[in-house]
Design a protein around this nucleic acid. Structure first.
Lengths: 107, 107
DNA sequence: AAAAAGAGCAACAAAAAGGTTGCCTTTTCC
DNA sequence: GGAAAAGGCAACCTTTTTGTTGCTCTTTTT
């Protein structure tokens, strides 16, 4: 049931912010965390952090699960694997360009 | 002389836009291209494309070289290699979390 | 049952992003 | 020398981002 994936730009955009990058760093450790937990130590308000989490959620980098009075966020690895592949293709293209240049000079 | 690298968030942000992603796709092919060339086929104005290029330049993903009346843009691979490493660390953390979970269940 | 903790919703405001247009300068080509 | 091509600069506009605050609701805790 491979879902239709966000285009890579949306995932990059979601990662393009230090606050959200920090949230990802915490969540990729595997332990689900509540909004309050994720707000601890941050200079931002809970609402601000919530908005960032919703943005990560739209990019499908995290998802939330409601339990009792709190909503826990968990990391989802797929979108990041996708953009890694994307970046690999970019690097590969570049490497091929370098190879061509090299054999042109040598040949 | 390893330059001080942009923090990863800035690089992700620079890639977080379809237009800029397309520009990167063209430039990572190795051939330097002028602004006019890069504007060809785009629905955007030259100025809009220029702004996107400047944004990629700030993130050090490309750099420009003036030759005569045109300015050529070239791809720079380092920032992308950096964020690939960053994403590898994220994936690694996640994988370790999964391993711990697995051995907890099995043990 | 009352207080406290965790969150959602909505309104608001400031700043940044994304794009346009007009005008000017510098090269190149005829 | 004059026209055309390539770009830089600045003003301007609209939309999105990023953040705040206040209020309400539900779930725990005591």
């Amino acid at each position: 049931m491979t879902a239709i994936r966000q285009p890579p730009a949306a995932v990059f955009a979601a990662l393009g912010d230090q606050t959200r990058l920090s949230l990802v760093a915490k969540l990729c450790g595997g332990q689900p965390r509540s909004i309050s937990q994720l707000t601890q130590g941050s200079k931002l308000s809970r609402q601000a952090v919530t908005k960032h989490l919703r943005m990560l959620e739209r990019a499908e980098i995290v998802h939330s699960v409601h339990t009792g009075r709190e909503s826990l966020f968990e990391f989802d690895p797929e979108p990041i694997e996708e953009i890694k592949k994307y970046l690999d293709r970019v690097s590969e293209q570049w490497d091929q360009a370098l190879s061509r240049l090299k054999s042109f000079i040598e040949g």
